[in-house]
Amino acid sequence: MFRIVNATGGYGKTVIIRDVSIAVDKAEIVALLGRNGVGKSTLMRFAMALIPALSGHVEIDGRNAPEAPAKRAKAGVGYVPQGRYVFPRMTVTENIGVAAETNGHSGRLAVETALREFPMLRPKADDLAGGLSGGQQQVLALARALATKPKILLLDEPTEGVQPSIIDEMAGILKRINRERGVAILVAEQDLDFCLSIATRAYVMEKGSVQLETDRESLRTDKKLQQQLLGV
């Protein structure tokens, strides 16, 4: 359903990821694992067309994805960047509303749905997003991406700097969204437990390339692999 094919790219002349291929099936949850600095975020930015492709391309439903990020978003790719990046001087409601309206959905309905799905945002609905806590901003960035009604959700380290209780809640919500709406998810993570709790398959990256593709069971049981690739 969603494929990154032979992705090579980076920043300026520095190539960071080389020849990376990844596939996510319809309604599948796939993890992208790897230590800090191996190029997970760079791959996500490649997938969203936020960095130019030196070579390689992205496919959605078997067709080449549009080259501009805004068009790619409209083609069904939702993106939650590492480090949140909510619109700071807009309210929580506006952050969600603008994402929905831009993609031709009702902003009011999207906000209602989001506040139902993420009750922790409810008391903050009219606050500026820049004033929320890290965990709240992370949840808002997720709610904003969902408001675009994506076919595939790209999550870049959603648990970073988020307290454990919220991480559990997030895992539950992601599984439910995946089950109920059939949204496919590609999640870059360093938190192995979080990935094991939601993903059924994983790619492990090292130095800008995919080192290995594995399923949940072997990842769970193979302690040596965990040690070697993630340092856990």
């Binding site: 969203m48 936020l50 501009a68 990020p69 805004a70 978003a73 409209k74 939702g78 993106y79 960047p81 990046y85 619109f87 700071p88 001087r89 807009m90 603008v98 994402a99 831009t102 993609n103 904003r144 991406a145 675009t148």
Partner: peptide, 10 residues
């Protein structure tokens, strides 16, 4: 406020 993030939501 965030041109790149804005593009990423369409």
């Amino acid at each position: 406020q965030m041109p790149e993030m804005a593009r990423a939501i369409g």
